[in-house]
């Protein structure tokens, strides 16, 4: 009963300490936001710098202009950009189909080897995937899908191994009530019809999440793309191509171009991402909770 009757003085104290702590938190959040955004602001500003192409000790350009974007247009960058875009687009479609097939089957069916299969794939994931590059590179080379023709090769590899990433969407399918399936079964629907007419319409968030992550992954893939394109400019993606610009022999002339390229790559992806943010957040939170 003592708690209900608070002395006015103590109440005031509580309110004040809460106000102080909230102010502190607001300040901390502002600082955090600045720290997180500042490199990107720097990249943006430096991409417009015309007076020198190398690193300098200030951020705001002395001479503004689009020189870096023009030289970007005249370099191999458009080719790399197109490569990456094609890979991302095909990947987004094919990978989504495969991931959904895999996760739906593992979530909804109870067959003999299901548990064993899932455990097997978990253990498979313990192996450093990078090892497989050595052999995949040589096999792809034999069929002529490396170097200048790295794009189809990369697509093939990305898609083929995409079944391993079924966790998040399986977690989502697990949350859809089984009674839906059962009711439809009673009405005589086949499993395929259930998937197409009942489950898929309910799965919009996870479908969008899968498409989004599948579309974004190729933009950042570095190591595999570098291995497969093997120093052939025609087969590189943006990450591999632009990585070379920051090598010791090129950085003096290409540093601001790297910034401009970074802007061109990041802006569309970021806008797309922010539009679909809601689904991404749902997927990430759901996936982590399920493990």
């Amino acid at each position: 009963m003592n708690n209900t009757v608070k002395s006015p003085k103590r109440h005031m104290g509580l309110a004040r300490s809460r106000a102080i702590s909230n102010t502190v938190i607001h300040i901390v959040l502002v600082i955090i936001s600045i720290i997180w955004l500042i490199p990107f602001v720097f990249i943006l500003l430096q991409s417009f710098r015309c007076e020198s192409a190398y690193q300098v000790g200030y951020v705001v350009p002395q001479q503004w202009g689009f020189d870096n974007y023009v030289s970007l247009w005249n370099s191999n960058f458009p080719k790399w950009y197109l490569n990456t875009f094609i890979i991302a687009l095909v990947n987004a479609v094919a990978q989504t189909v495969i991931v959904l097939c895999m996760s739906y089957a593992l979530s909804r069916f109870r067959f003999k080897l299901r548990k064993a299969l899932m455990r097997f794939m978990l253990v498979l994931g313990f192996f450093p995937g990078m090892l497989t590059m050595i052999i995949l590179y040589r096999v792809l080379k034999d069929i002529g899908l490396t170097q200048a023709h790295a794009v189809p090769g990369l697509i093939l590899v990305y898609i083929a191994s995409s079944g391993m990433g079924y966790y998040v969407s399986k977690g989502f399918f697990d949350t859809l009530p089984k009674s839906l399936d059962e009711a439809a079964r009673v009405d005589g629907a086949t499993r395929f019809q259930i998937l197409r007419k009942i489950i898929l319409p309910l799965s919009k968030p996870i479908v969008i999440y899968t498409i989004l992550t599948a579309f974004m992954a190729p933009w950042g893939d570095f190591v595999f793309a570098r291995y497969i394109s093997f120093e052939n400019s025609a087969g590189m993606n943006v990450a591999v191509g632009m990585y070379n610009w920051l090598n010791l022999d090129q950085i003096t002339t290409k540093y601001t171009m790297f910034c401009a390229g970074g802007v061109i790559v990041a802006v569309p992806v970021t806008i797309l991402f922010l539009c679909l943010q809601k689904y991404y957040v749902e997927g990430v939170t759901g996936g982590a909770v399920k493990g």
Partner: peptide, 18 residues
């Protein structure tokens, strides 16, 4: 949103730049 935005930017850009 500010924090989430940084997820969208491909890591090779942010990491190489930093």
């Amino acid at each position: 949103t500010i924090l989430v935005m940084t997820i969208a930017i491909p890591q090779f850009i942010s990491l190489l730049y930093v």
